[in-house]
Amino acid sequence: MHPALQGILTIAFGVGGCVGYFYLSNIILDHAIFPARGTHIARNIRRANIVRPWLFLLPALLALGLYLAYPVFETLRLSLTERVPGGGSVFVGLDNYKQMLGEDKFWEALQNNFLWLLVVPAGATAFGLLAAQLTDRIAWGNLAKSLIFMPMAISFVGAAVIWKLVYDARPPGAEQIGVLNAIYIYYGGDEAQQWLTIPFWNSFFLMAVLIWIQTGFAMVILSAALRGVPEDTIEAAIVDGANPFQIFFRIKMPQIMGTIVVVWTTITIVVLKVFDIVFAMTNGQWQTQVLANYMFDKLFRANDWGVGSASAMVIMLLVSPILIWNVYNARKEMR
């Protein structure tokens, strides 16, 4: 069968299945299980209404349970076992964790993750806030916003490829195409550099990619928040003699602090899970390893599911508190 046809059939089957499920299960509930007639009509209607939300939520709960909840526990189990040659596995306690903690590469990844954590959310939020404020009052602000937002539509791998070209360096003698090298040489650099192989700084070159992507997200959310700042308070500040900087930092920013925190933590979670960019650009070489890529290395390259799962658990432990805080703040904002 032609793949396109197969795709269409899958969509039709999936959507049709969903519609059919909701429609038919609803009919069965209303007519077969709790019919709205007879002596217990009021009770039946009440009961049907209690059951209905669960009925409609069931597919989603099952899917989430299967693809999110179950893997968490399975990963936890795997992180405590070791595969034995010839099939099967044995319980090894915390051995996998011990082995992982003894590896330099793990500590390098953890260290890099913290570096990312410091730089990327701060950078993306700051640039997003700047872009939101600067594009707010100008005629071509929306065009500028669209351009800044566009990287959000590019997959991380696509972005990585684009930026790899920016950092590209050809052998001496060959024609150079890297923008960064062009700038470097314009400002007096001697020869083209292999930017991604220069430890410590190369991590920042990778971070630039994620900042480039996330700035658009931060800008859109913060722009909406800035518009929600009451105009009156800004006018009152003008009458009080505040200059534009004071208005921005002392009147506007404090009023959107809740949103800034939500944006910051949301990006933090993205950063903790960062994988594609590192995978596609350096694959963790030259001291750019991060936790997610380390996990991938262990799980799918070394086939060491024990240590791989252990590192996955570490990522989850790091993300969870921030996620909870994020949800807490987002809810507070919505009230």
Binding site: P230, D232, T233, E235, A236, D240, G241, P254, Q255
Partner: peptide, 21 residues
């Protein structure tokens, strides 16, 4: 002349208090 240097003070309908202060 900008508002602050006109020697005026304004009371707004919505009070316009700075909510974070």
């Amino acid at each position: 002349i900008p508002p602050a240097q006109r020697g005026i003070a304004m009371v707004f309908q919505s009070y316009a208090l700075y909510p974070h202060m």
